[in-house]
């Protein structure tokens, strides 16, 4: 249980000993910080929307909901593969685990492709950060999230590489940490999609 080396002292008294956090404490601290960042962004969006309901509703209608929904499917499918990758490594099958990571990476790649086409269509219309507050949020939020998808893909690629070269004693803990991060990226999009693309 590698997380033990990072555990904060004496806060675990209430939890039964067999409960454990999948992944390293450091990555969870990081995830919390990320969630906080997105929470601030989401709440700011909500407040700004409340002040300009018409502007937000008009802007939202111009967004490509199909692209948004497709990207949701790609992300949750990627997460599903990552879950399988963790299970396979626990089951002593690093090869199968690496394969599932590749599939997850492919989903991430698909997300990027869809996003690029979506942005291209918007920028072709001359839409920018300064168009209005709605588009400012649309571009900022989705771009900030996109950076997280990219970082998640880098992490998955590194994990894939270390699985391919043969797992060591810390590989499972690393995989769990990377998986938790990838799921966090998914979790954020699950809020972002209905909020920015659908809710009116």
């Amino acid at each position: 249980m590698s997380t033990e080396s990072l555990a904060l002292p004496a806060t675990t008294g209430t939890a039964p000993p067999e409960r454990r956090l999948a992944g390293d404490l450091a990555i969870w601290v990081f995830i919390c910080a990320e969630l906080l960042a997105f929470a601030v962004f989401f709440v700011a969006y909500g407040v700004a929307r409340a002040r300009h309901v018409d502007m937000f509703n008009t802007g939202q209608l111009t967004l490509d909901r199909n692209a948004g929904a497709l990207n949701t499917v790609l992300l949750i499918t990627g997460s599903w593969f990552v879950v399988q990758a963790v299970a396979r490594l626990r089951g002593g099958d690093p090869g199968g685990s690496a394969g599932r990571l590749l599939l997850a990476l492919a989903c991430g790649g698909g997300f990027l492709v869809v996003k690029v086409f979506e942005y291209k269509a918007k920028f072709a219309l001359g839409i920018s950060l300064s168009t209005d507050t709605f588009y400012m949020f649309y571009i900022s939020l989705t771009f900030f999230h996109l950076m997280h998808v990219l970082l998640g893909m880098v992490i998955l690629a590194l994990l894939w590489n270390s699985l391919r070269r043969g797992p060591g004693p810390t590989t499972l803990s690393s995989l769990e940490s990377g998986a938790a991060y990838w799921h966090m990226v998914d979790l954020v999009w699950i809020i972002l999609f209905p909020l920015v693309y659908v809710m009116r």
Partner: peptide
Amino acid sequence: YWQWWGSI
């Protein structure tokens, strides 16, 4: 947009 980015 810097007011939003900077604040957040």
